[in-house]
Amino acid sequence: MVLKIGLVGCGAIGTEIAKAIDRGDIAAELVAVFDRNEERARELVRRLEIRPEISGLEGLVELSEVVVEAASQRSVPEVARAALERGRDLMIMSVGALLDGDLYRMVADLAKENGCKVYLPSGAISGLDGLKSASAGKIELVTLTTTKNPKGFSGAPYIEDMQIDLAAITEPAVIFEGPAEEAVSAFPANVNVAATLSLAARGARVMVRIVADPEIDVNVHQISAEGDFGRITTKVENLPSPQNPKTSYLAALSAIATLRSIAEPIKIGT
């Protein structure tokens, strides 16, 4: 049977997922889409050969086997409850929301009670399989350094709260340093990978440094992890999404790869 997918959020990542399904890159059917901005949903559907239904959240859940959240951290509680209470599997792109302990427990409990799976793609980073393996032992510290062009941080709550003039940055500048829990709320559209690292590390300390560099046109994520296993270091230089410079294109590809893994019988990697 073809996997039936409902998509919540028709922005940069949601659009890439929809187009991949439409091309046949995923053995699935996009049965419904939902976006608070209905015109954005209509625009996405118009661009597809096989056009899904434009639905409200409840209707989308009823039509789907897997619900994909690609909207925002704010949407995660509502989407998770709607999907999991009805026994639907769920893929969450806005992973930063799950660093709220109460929300994480709610999602985990609902998934267990209703026999569901919750999928968290690795996003715009590499090495997550190694980190998951290392978490079976003891991880002492994980550090993430994210470097982007200043325009990629435009509109972030931290930038606005601190009144940082991004246009005035003329050389690489550290604009934030702190734990993952603070980073994901300060930069909700930029560092969901910090939350993914924190969850994969199973409670190990994850520190985040954010650098604005006007000379680069890629999004760089460098990760270092230390523990009784040794040391892991990875670096990825991502091209920004053509539709949204705040998002790395690899994050969308990660979502597509995760959906492929759900639909296909053979799983590769940890």
Rank of each mutant, 00 (worst) to 15 (best):
V2C: 00
G6S: 04
L7E: 04
G9K: 01
I13M: 09
T15I: 04
I17E: 02
I17N: 02
K19G: 01
A27M: 11
A27P: 03
E29I: 03
V31I: 12
F34D: 01
R36S: 14
R36F: 10
N37D: 13
E38N: 09
E43P: 00
R47K: 14
G56K: 12
L60V: 05
E62V: 09
S64V: 01
V68A: 01
A70R: 03
S72H: 03
R74I: 05
S75N: 02
P77K: 06
P77T: 06
V79Q: 01
G87M: 09
G87T: 11
I92D: 05
I92L: 15
M93K: 07
S94I: 05
S94C: 11
L98P: 03
D102W: 07
L103F: 03
D109Y: 12
D109P: 02
D109L: 12
A111S: 13
A111R: 04
C116H: 06
C116I: 09
A124D: 06
S126D: 10
L128H: 02
L131W: 00
A136H: 13
T143N: 11
P150A: 09
G152S: 12
F153T: 00
S154D: 08
G155V: 10
P157D: 06
L166A: 11
I169Y: 02
V174I: 15
E182C: 06
F187E: 00
T196N: 09
S198W: 00
A201G: 03
R202I: 08
A204W: 10
M207F: 10
R209I: 06
R209K: 14
I210G: 09
A212T: 04
D213M: 06
E215K: 13
N219G: 15
H221E: 14
Q222Y: 08
E226A: 10
T233N: 15
T233A: 15
T234N: 09
N238K: 07
L239A: 15
S241M: 11
Q243H: 14
N244H: 07
P245Q: 07
P245R: 04
K246A: 15
T247D: 00
Y249N: 11
L250F: 07
L250C: 06
I256Q: 10
A257N: 13
A257D: 12
A257K: 15
T258R: 05
T258V: 14
L259M: 07
I262N: 04
A263H: 11
E264T: 13
G269S: 13
T270K: 15
